[in-house]
Design a protein around this nucleic acid. Sequence first.
DNA 1: AGTGAAAAGGCTTTAAC
DNA 2: GTTAAAGCCTTTTCACT
Lengths: 157, 157
Amino acid sequence: MEESRKSFDAVDLRILSILLKDSRTPLHDISRAINLSTTSCWNRIKRMTDCGVLESYTVKLDLAQLGYNDTVIVQVTLDSHSEQTLYEFGRALESIPEVLEALLISGDYDYFLRLAVKDTRDYERLLRERLYTIPGIRHSKSSFVLRTLKKVDTPLT
Amino acid sequence: MEESRKSFDAVDLRILSILLKDSRTPLHDISRAINLSTTSCWNRIKRMTDCGVLESYTVKLDLAQLGYNDTVIVQVTLDSHSEQTLYEFGRALESIPEVLEALLISGDYDYFLRLAVKDTRDYERLLRERLYTIPGIRHSKSSFVLRTLKKVDTPLT
DNA sequence: AGTGAAAAGGCTTTAAC
DNA sequence: GTTAAAGCCTTTTCACT
């Protein structure tokens, strides 16, 4: 973590794009794809790792095969909007594995939650045992995801 | 892609958990962490790759460093809910890189979109030039993400 | 399913240009 | 920015339990 440059050229982006599709693509293949030596590719990847734009290497999993067949969007309104309440709400959500995403939203001082649940029974249990036990929830509204039209992690193509 | 078993034991999940944190963890380190030979680890990973639960190896990027500082949630209602309209809506969203997520939701026949934008000007441009040009949008409501309390990809710890 | 050990291949560094 | 080469580490295969 030495460099902190924040400019990336088109070649950098092409490398990231390749790594997004398959992070185990050999350097040799990357260098051929973008017409650059393997050493240059390596230096660019190292620079992007050091400056943090390339945060980590990970895997993508099929949640359905792990039993998580449904996604639920829950909109929540809290009683209070103090920093204290927000902090405790965040802490509580952190400890619930099924809460994949929790966003504080402008406008109505609402929260958007995205949950991964096994089925409707699991969803009901989660809401009753884990979510509604969090103090300070004034109101909530759930929507089941019927279809995922698109899901990507970055605007990079 | 030969096997299609859909049962995974605790050891499989531990391997996935390690790969989620760092997909470049050497097999040797994984095997030490779970008390299993490298070959067994390799066989389990291969099995999970073949059956598709381990979809792909990828990287996590820092979107802010790439210039995408803001996230916007857009809720959309369409004029028609026919399969044809849905299909064309999905196609149009597919071609907009900034649309990271598009979900068809139960209840009001609404869509949830999650957009990555550089700033408010970029958001305004995106809405005016790309989103509102899609035919069939009856109504939309935007919310800026003020804070991300939590964001993970799986319920696995 | 499991193991250890050998073979194959990719990563990383260095050096010279 | 380039190529080339060496050493190291990881992945992959194989023979066997």
